[in-house]
Design a binder for these strands. Structure first.
Lengths: 414, 414
DNA sequence: ACAACTTAGTTCGTGTTCCGATTTAACTTC
DNA sequence: GAAGTTAAATCGGAACACGAACTAAGTTGT
């Protein structure tokens, strides 16, 4: 128990350097005095650490503020253009690769469709690696002579990421069992790799730039074709003892209930995921036109539209299916509130964003009825702000987070 | 985000002092060299810090090890007899108060029955305060001239403990809403108070001295008349944003299901708690003798015995009720494994310990069938080792934990 | 126009702290 | 009793944050 190592006097500097850099990253254009006040460090210490960061070209003086009666403040900023990161979103149907600068301004992007194998929803690890390699080639790298350093590649995948130090990916729904993705990808790149669950990376993006800003205990619910969740405790993703925490999709919502694509019965995903909503509607209203939809997104939009048509048979069927979805989502959110006592619950994913418009009030009410009063009153249930395409953005935050943590003195080739 | 304060060079000393003291507490009779090796601190630093702790009379030299060819090791120990703590278990039917030394060796105990009010299961806050005061008087305090310092009183209560800095207790089942227990108790004692949920304190006891030793991510499930849980992440209780995390009893196990004593329908407690088991058996086998049992414990024992009688009507009813209980417990454990990815799940509480003998294999199997393969394979489902009476012991760990954290330099009257 | 303010940032001396090297302490073994 | 061995203490050096004093770079008032 409590086997943390003893602290060194140099750890103090490391910790303070990282603290100042993080503050500067999330509060751009601060002066040294701002930093001093925000962190509690003395002005002398801030001066000293900032000088070091400027010396290392991690921070730059970016201007000065108009004076109001004294010496003007010199504004500091992270030297965002000098560092770049790459974010990858491995989806079941396509791979998206984006290149960003340190400030996560997008510089280039590529989208590679996945070859659909014999069985739908199954993709070979080799195809994913090839797709990532192709995407990396398209987005390119900065000119090696420019002095720009690429910090690493963050990758969001639709499965459980386990194993240390080499990441291994499990995903029952697409048939991956202990795929050594990190080792496979190392064949196509030398850059540091940061692999995480896609729900986690999307949640991370919302924490940094979306509905989770400044909140520490947050649950991010990703509702797409299937569903997943990311548990953010104390501002960072909680991973559990073997990095698979937050597997929300396959908790049992109804014993002996509907068959799920994972093979079990009564999984929550079989009531909330878009695939299941579409299937349930097709069962309830066989004559409906949803089957002819071009995509899942299109099909879900048609169901939402049908639900608004008062008198038709299909309207009744659509309303029943959506009501069942809202009921299960609300109950599950109530349960999560009791278990985790979060400050905020964020609903995201492409289906979640589509559904939230019509369903959110009902979901809130069901959650209220099924949660204890006290924790419910502290939990805000909100909709994600970033859209479903932020998985790559969130993945790119992973190398950035490492950089901020090490304050640029990590393993560098310098 | 990340608004931690800057670190000081004196924080290093504080942190190392606490680290060494904690190590010494959990690994008694270590030498300075043992400490150095275990913490990574240099021998010089260990010497210096230990000298300080000895000077402060927090640590003593307690002997020497036989030499094996060189200077013998001097053994160090925490000066346990110089410090005492008090643990209180506030139950629905009785209050237990125990006095311990720092090593949590019991020195005195008292058990005060609670006056049963008009409605069963409702107890007035005033009665609790009076009961605690009476218990404190019985266990007494050390002689003021002895130099023994009492670090504080830890209190485990059956409800949600919220509020800072003054603890306020909510409990829907016994009718407490925002009871300012800390303020009320301050009327009867001047000692520092540490109030927490009883499931948390019992879980804490298991973490320090029972089935959770050395494990960091653990869920402790308390099954008594009602049920509760304690979520231990990274070795300490996770409390959520407003300290009510782990409210496992009133998550919804079946939508529109059995009526729970909290007023909602389908709560897990209505399927797993001893009160519900007894009620369900009484419904299924009205002729049974369980109703005449002297206590809930007695009633549950009779149901377990009935279930073992092959051919009787009552045996079938008992088996059906217990099977339903095992099913819901297993499903819920499977869900918790998916969500939290714990290293260990510990079943405790008086009813949990009684049930585990017969039900555990079935519960494990159900959990396996309802959890994802990967996280299930990492989670051990075990039975608590400390018995149900360790709530007071666990409560007493709270002031001890604070003492170890501050290494004896906290707010002292010295 | 120039002194008097005002605010931002730097420099410097001081006190803590950990650490490596060396020394001292306390044994055993030959 | 000399040599060897292991444990612990001591000492000087380096890293660090901090407070106080100081410098820099403006505005304001007369």
């Amino acid at each position: 128990m409590a086997e943390r190592r003893g602290r060194n006097v140099r750890d103090v500097r490391r910790s303070n350097r990282s603290l100042l850099l993080r503050h500067l990253y999330f509060h751009p254009s601060s002066s040294r005095l701002d930093l001093s006040r925000a962190t509690g460090l003395s002005a002398a210490s801030v001066s000293s650490v900032v000088a070091e960061l400027i010396e290392a070209q991690v921070v730059i003086e970016s201007g000065a503020l108009e004076s109001d009666g004294g010496r003007p403040r010199i504004l500091l900023d992270v030297a965002a253009p000098r560092f770049q990161v790459i974010g990858v979103d491995v989806g079941e149907t396509r791979i998206r690769v984006e290149r960003f600068d340190l400030g996560l301004t997008e510089l280039a992007r590529a989208e590679i469709p996945m070859p659909q194998g014999r069985e739908p929803g199954r993709c070979a690890p080799g195809d994913v690696v090839a797709g990532v390699a192709e995407g990396l080639a398209v987005v390119g790298l900065p000119d090696p002579d420019s002095g720009v350093r690429v910090l690493g590649i963050g990758i969001g995948v639709p499965g459980i990421v386990a194993g240390r130090p080499e990441s291994v990916v499990h995903c029952q729904t697409i048939g991956w069992d202990a795929v050594p993705l990190e080792a496979l990808l190392r064949e196509v790149t030398d850059l540091p790799l940061f692999i995480d669950n896609g729900a986690n990376t999307l949640g991370q993006a919302e924490m940094w730039f979306g509905a989770g800003r400044g909140v520490s205990d947050t649950l991010f619910l990703l509702i797409g074709s299937g569903i997943g969740a990311s548990v953010m405790l104390d501002g960072v993703a909680y991973r559990g003892s073997s990095t698979s925490a937050g597997e929300w999709g396959h908790i049992t919502a109804a014993i002996g209930g509907r068959l799920c694509r994972c093979g079990a019965r009564g999984c929550l995903e079989a009531y909330i995921g878009a695939e299941s909503i579409i299937a349930r509607y097709a069962e309830a209203a066989p004559a409906a036109d949803a089957a002819s939809a071009a995509s899942e997104e299109d099909a879900l939009l048609r169901i939402l539209a049908a639900a608004r048509r008062e008198e038709s048979e299909q309207g009744r069927a659509a309303r029943a299916v959506l009501a069942e979805t809202a009921l299960h989502l609300g109950v599950s959110i109530g349960n999560l509130i009791n278990l985790f006592n979060p400050e905020r619950i964020i609903i995201g994913g492409w289906a979640g964003l589509l559904l939230a418009g019509d369903l959110l009030p009902g979901v809130r009410e069901v959650a209220r009825a099924h949660a204890l009063r006290h924790p419910f009153s502290k939990a805000a249930i909100e909709v994600g702000r970033l859209g479903p395409d932020a998985v790559a953005l969130g993945a790119a935050t992973l190398p950035v987070a490492r950089f901020l943590h090490t304050a640029g003195v990590g393993p560098r080739s310098h």
